[in-house]
């Protein structure tokens, strides 16, 4: 096996890596954005629930969540579908974790916008929900962009944890190449560089874009 063959084999895991990262990011977004607003604007019991969710998902290792869902929940006959599917479990587990992280990102963004805007919107006759949708959310996105960028980068890296469930992503491919070619150096170094290539440019770009926009808007 020469180098280009190895590289092609490793790259064949790329779609899976990207699919896990992007889907779990979206799931995290769907969970995180509402949670951030619930945590900021609703009553105590809801806040405690959200805090609990964040605390648990942020302290429990992703690997443990995956094993729990795959072998634990997937072991219950009624839940065999979809929890016996390793791709689904990996995405789902990372998505839940990302939801907790994104909720925190959005929350600090909401705090950054400040209470005044909410008060101003309300005094203009918008309902609370309208104010959230038309005033708060658009600005939240801008402030949250750098945070979301690094969360995405984190997911790309953490998608490699799906390795332990046997999902065939870049990580697993690199391991296969190592096993079949007995080359212990190239596959891992190349794959590490590929991961860096996937994470670094986008995160850096979003970071600078976010800070620029923020300055423009005076937030």
């Amino acid at each position: 096996m020469d180098l280009s063959e190895k590289l092609i084999l490793i790259l064949s895991g790329l779609p899976t890596t990207l699919a896990i990262s992007i889907l779990s990011f979206l799931l995290g977004f769907i969970i995180g954005l509402p949670l951030a607003f619930v945590r900021t604007y609703t009553s105590k019991p809801f806040q405690i629930l959200v805090d609990g969710y964040e605390k648990v998902l942020r302290s429990v290792p992703e690997i443990v969540t995956m094993l729990f869902l795959y072998f634990g929940v997937g072991g219950i006959p009624a839940f065999r579908f979809p929890f016996k599917n390793s791709f689904f479990v990996a995405t789902f587990a990372l998505g839940l974790r990302s939801g907790a992280n994104q909720s925190q990102v959005f929350r600090s963004a909401i705090r950054g916008i400040g209470e005044e805007q909410m008060v101003a919107a309300r005094s203009l006759g918008l309902s609370r929900l309208q104010a959230v949708f038309h005033v708060m959310i658009p600005q939240t996105f801008i402030i949250a962009t750098p945070g979301l960028g690094s969360e995405y980068a984190l997911l790309v890296k953490d998608s490699s944890y799906s390795f332990i469930l046997g999902v065939i992503d870049m990580m697993r491919r690199a391991d296969t190449v190592r096993k079949t070619s007995l080359d212990t150096v190239f596959p891992y170094i190349a794959t590490a560089l590929l991961y860096i290539l996937l994470t670094f440019p986008l995160a850096t770009y979003l970071d600078s874009w976010g800070s620029r926009k923020k300055k423009e808007l005076g937030l």
Binding site: A153, K157, D158, S159, S160, Y161, F163, M171, A174, Y188, T191, A192, L193, Y195, I196, T199, F200
Partner: peptide
């Protein structure tokens, strides 16, 4: 910071 821990 850019590569997965497992690879490291």
């Amino acid at each position: 910071r850019g590569s997965p821990l497992i690879i490291q």
